[in-house]
Structure formats: C-alpha cells, structure tokens
Nucleic acid binder design. Structure first.
Lengths: 207, 207
DNA sequence: TTTAATTATCGACCAGCGGTCGATAGAACG
DNA sequence: CGTTCTATCGACCGCTGGTCGATAATTAAA
C-alpha cells in the first residue's frame, strides 16, 4: 500500500515524530525503525528525505533554537517591561520543555542525550547571544549596567544559566537549589555591573 | 593461542588502549572490535573485565579527572606562589591534553565525543570544586577576594573556563580569542571580587 | 489519449555493532 | 594426579544505520 504525499508534508511528519521520540526517549535510544513505525513509511522513504539520522537531529535542534529565539525576541521588544525583567524572561523562555510537562523536561537532558544537548547548547548560544547583546547595550546606555565586554559577558551568562539549571549536568539535591540560584544571580549582577541586590526579585521566578 | 595474564594487568591494558582510541578517534567511532584488535584479545575477554563499552568510558573519565585533580593539589599546596597564580595554574592543569600534542587536544572535544565530554565535565566539576573552594576561602581570609557564594562561584568559574576554552563548543575565529580571554578574566575578577585588573597578567598564559 | 519523465515510496539486503555464552586451556592447590 | 578456579576463546545473536534497484503515482509532453 502506497500513500503518496507532497514532499514538504512528509518531511515535516518525520521531523515531528522524530522530535517527540528524541526528546522523550533520547537520541541514541531512538532507532530509525522506531520513527518509521510511527510515521508508517518504509526505510527508503526516510532516507529519501534525510541523508542520515543525525541530519534529522540537526534540523530538529535548529527548530527548537529558532522557536526559543522567536519567544525571546517577542519578550525583549516590549519596552513597557523593565529591561532586567525582559532579559531574565528571555533567558527563561529557552528550554521550551519548561512549558510542557516536567517529565519531558527531565528526559530531555540525560547522559544518553549528550549529543542532542551539546548541539543544542552550541546553536542556542550562537542564536541568543546577539539578541541579548542588544539588550545589554540598552542597559549600558541607560546607565543600568556597567561592563567592558558585553558580548563575552552575556555569552557567559547564557552558558552558565543553561549549564547550571537546564542541563542535568549538575546533580544537586533539591535543598541545594536556593543557594545555587542566589549564587548565580549574585554573579550575574557582578558581571553586568548592576547594583548588588538588583536581581533579588527573580529568586522566586525559579520556583 | 592463549596468553594468560593476571587480571589487573589485562584490565589496565584494555583501559590504556581504549583511552588512546576514545581520545583520538572519538568514543562512538571506536568499536569494541577496534580495541580487541590492538590489545589482541577475544571479545569474551573484554566482557570478562567490563560489563559494557560505556563502563570502560566511565573508568577512563574517572582516571583523567583524578590525574587532573592530583596535579591541581600539587599546584595549590605550594604556598610560595601567589594565591591567584596557583588558582589559575590549577585550572589550566586540567585538560591533560594541553600537555600532549595539539592534535590530540583538538580531537578530544568533538561533536562525536559529546558523551565523553559531558561525563568529563560533570566529573571534573565534582572533583575540582572542593579543591578550589579551599583556595578561595584562603583568598577571602587574606582579604584578596570578596564574595558571598564561594562554592557556587568557583563552580561557575570552572564550568565557564572549561566550556569556553577546552570544549570545542564555541567555534570562534582565532582573532576572537584575545577578547574572549579578556572578557573571561574580567568576569572572573568581578565574581571573585578582586581589584579590577588583578588578573591581567594571565592574558599571556593562554597563548 | 498515449507516452515520457519525474517524484515519491517500497522493502529486501548489507556490513558492522555491542553484547552473550558455553567450551576450554592454563595455573594453583590438595 | 585430579580438581577447582580463573582467564581466554570465538561462534553466535538481534538489531542498527544505511543502500539500492524496482515500481507506483503524478505530472508534463506529444
């Protein structure tokens, strides 16, 4: 039985299913056959659209990063909100899994997903740094921030936030989190050169 | 033909060969058969000593991290050297590949090695944070550093240093490096609460 | 309307993977 | 000398990511 669809439609079907599986089961743990079964196509069809399983991963990561960036852009451009709030919200609007179920979030960042994780981190930094650099420049102009290396600093803050709180790389007890969050915010204040305590309000945002 | 050796010897042989291969070719790209060929043993012998290929990886990472920690301990205890220098040197004494050829270093941190990389980062942080926490406490006592969250801060500095300069996660042009290093040192100064410019001397150390 | 060309789909097939297991050789001990 | 225990062997297994030639469906040309 042969069900023919227009190319782009099939491609999106495959991407959708693969994304769901990669995120829930892990990239390595998802076989091409798993995808085939759900999309209900033959192997040849899969490889007609993608050169490899890894190419699918790359496309998915690009999508995820792009969605996060779009959310960030929306948040950042609303100048009725205080700048610091916009920046914090833009950062937290990454890791789209946060919105969905906790389970998915937990599954996404596993040892088995090291490849997905690493590619995501790389792509996210590349896409988000310029966006937040503009925001930081705005803060410098408004005399809110005082720093010499805005690009390098926002890059570091993004990386830290992601590695500490989104990746599962740190295996902390629940009880450690308050100190970790406080520490992160304190260092963020220092790096941006805001007044100390400027970010204290965001403590509860992490709950 | 059967060559019998004492258990521990065989185990070390396997670890040595596997480490060389994992670091040069990548973990995923190295098959168990590749290891078998070089050690010149049968598959059964490999699985007599290790439950899985991944268990070998875990053991190797533990070794690498432990070696780095030992070097750091040596460096940190020599109180004739200024504290800041000791801390910087201890950090740079990680990534053992730095000592060896540049090629090996470049190969180690590749996309294909995401798993190795992630496990290494995790283990390194766990092992190194307490060591440097002591050093930071020394700095606070000596009125050199001024900060509220020493543990969280040194954890972040270690993580940043590793992610920015050891991992290949950032694909920077050669020309970007001076700014990246300056930015990192500036943020390190701020996080530790030293006088600005205190770390400038270490710029050339990165060359 | 028939033919030709193009696009999308199929699934048998492949080499190689990580991992299992029963057989057995060699050393150690009584 | 026989037994026991440890270390070694390699054939075998299910499954993986990936290939490829055949062919069905669709579109374009005659």
């Amino acid at each position: 039985m042969k069900t023919v669809k227009e190319g782009e439609v099939r491609k999106q079907e495959i991407l959708m299913v693969a994304r769901e599986l990669f995120v829930t089961k892990g990239y390595e743990q998802t076989s091409v056959n798993d995808i085939l079964k759900i999309v209900d196509i033959a192997k040849g069809t899969f490889y007609y659209y993608f050169a490899s399983k890894e190419e699918v991963l790359a496309a998915i990561i690009l999508d995820i990063v792009e969605e996060g960036a779009k959310r960030a852009e929306q948040i950042l451009k609303d100048k009725s909100v205080p700048l610091i709030n916009r920046i914090m919200m833009a950062m937290m609007a990454q890791s789209p899994e946060f919105e969905g179920s906790e389970e998915i979030r937990d599954e996404m960042h596993k040892v088995e997903n090291a490849k997905l994780e690493q590619l995501y981190t790389k792509a996210m930094l590349k896409r988000m740094t310029p966006l937040l650099e503009v925001a930081v420049a705005e803060g410098i102009a408004a005399d809110l921030f005082h720093l010499e290396y805005p690009r390098e600093t926002i890059e570091s803050i993004l990386l830290l936030g992601h590695m500490l709180f989104d990746c599962n790389i740190m295996d902390w007890e629940m009880a450690d989190y308050p100190a970790k969050i406080r520490g992160f915010l304190a260092n963020m204040e220092r790096m941006l050169g805001t007044g100390a305590g400027e970010l204290e309000d965001f403590l509860q945002m992490f709950a």
